[in-house]
Computed example of a mutant assay.
Amino acid sequence: MAPTFSAWFATKKGPPSVGFQLKTGLPIPDTLPKDHVLVKVQAIALNPYIYKMNIGLPNFVAKRPHVIERDMAGIVVNPNGTEFVAGDLVFGSNAGAMSEYMVIPSRSLVLQPPNVTPLEAAGLAIVTLTANQALKDLQVKAGQTVFINGGSSAVGLSAIQIAKSLGCNVVATASARNKDVLLNLGVDEFIDYTRAPLVEQLAKRDSPPFDAVFDAVGLKDPALYLNCPSYLAPRGMYVSAGGFPGSRKDLAGVLRQVFSGKLLPTWLGGVPRKFGFVTCPSAKKDFEEVRTLVAEGAVKPIVDSVHSFDRAGVMAAYDKLMTNRAVGKVVIKIEDSTDKA
């Protein structure tokens, strides 16, 4: 009998408990497209937009059924003439990661850093790629002060570490329960966003304005950008990660406010500060940069929790993710994966 594997599919619109299904008995591919690699997956890291899109998008847009998730770490089984060799430990990101075996373009993979486990490597790609690109877009330099909203988010945790490695001063937000996590990463000033409206707290700071703002939370509250002249230097830039308010109507309203602020002249209510969205890069060189950041110790991946690949484990993992209280990545472990660095 030919060897088979299991994978998690999005099969219908709805939350994970309704829309995600484990399918078994899938044949392991024995022929691969050019420049693709067969990887035996060790661990998968969950991303919030996966379940949010499954809740919000109809079938004809989401193109169900499809294997879910993107971030993974694993072992090369068939290098298929690429630069890899069988047995290489790799991490990367591409559609269809929640699977015991994955066919993935070689350009979307790099070797796992030697100083992390597969469980840690699984969550490196999207959050570290995004954080690194955001700081590039902001053009931050040593000695400058960067404000990071959402410091305890997975992207925020990576951004804090990269900014500190660049020699920046970092001011970051989180709730009080995560204060020590951020301070241990080197945050110079912690702001508890639950203590009072964040815009008010920032406007009252008795410190020079920020040189750059990275909103790792995304488009949750346009007020942070619309009021940023009170705390962002005139030549500073505001960069936002992707984010999704509770409904498409809310999203449309936020976008309208943000782009009005960006595009209108000041005398018509425009915001005299540069604004941009960060996009997650996908070039091979970007994955290599992430690997180097981790291998050199500039970024230490943070894992919130580890769950099993069966239904109970996967549903518990998404339940944790949907609380919005995970600190670091929520990871699914394939049972026979190794935890050795």
Rank of each mutant, 00 (worst) to 15 (best):
M1A: 14
A2V: 10
A7M: 01
S17E: 15
G19L: 02
I28G: 03
T31R: 15
K34F: 04
K34I: 05
H36P: 03
V39R: 00
Q42G: 14
A43R: 00
A43Q: 05
A45I: 07
Y49S: 12
Y49W: 13
M53Q: 15
G56F: 03
G56A: 05
G56H: 11
V61F: 02
R64E: 01
I68D: 00
D71E: 10
M72Y: 10
G81Y: 01
A86M: 12
G92P: 06
A95V: 12
G96Y: 05
M98W: 09
E100K: 06
Y101L: 02
V110K: 01
V110I: 14
N115Q: 07
T117S: 15
E120I: 11
A121K: 01
I126F: 13
Q139L: 06
A142G: 15
I148P: 09
S152P: 00
A154L: 08
S165Y: 07
S165N: 13
A172L: 07
T173E: 05
K179C: 01
V187N: 11
V187D: 11
I191M: 05
Y193Q: 02
V199I: 08
D206A: 15
D206K: 15
A212K: 04
A212I: 09
F214N: 09
F214Q: 04
D215I: 07
A216D: 08
A216M: 11
V217H: 12
G218S: 08
D221W: 09
P222Y: 04
A223S: 14
L232M: 08
P234C: 03
R235M: 01
G246T: 02
G246Y: 08
S247N: 01
S247H: 12
K249L: 08
G253V: 01
K262C: 15
K262E: 10
T266Q: 12
W267F: 06
L268G: 00
P272E: 15
R273P: 08
V278G: 04
V278D: 06
T279A: 01
T279E: 06
T279N: 08
P281K: 07
D286H: 04
R291W: 07
A298S: 15
P301W: 12
D304P: 04
A317N: 02
K320E: 05
R325V: 11
A326G: 08
K329T: 03
I332K: 06
T338Q: 05
K340Y: 12
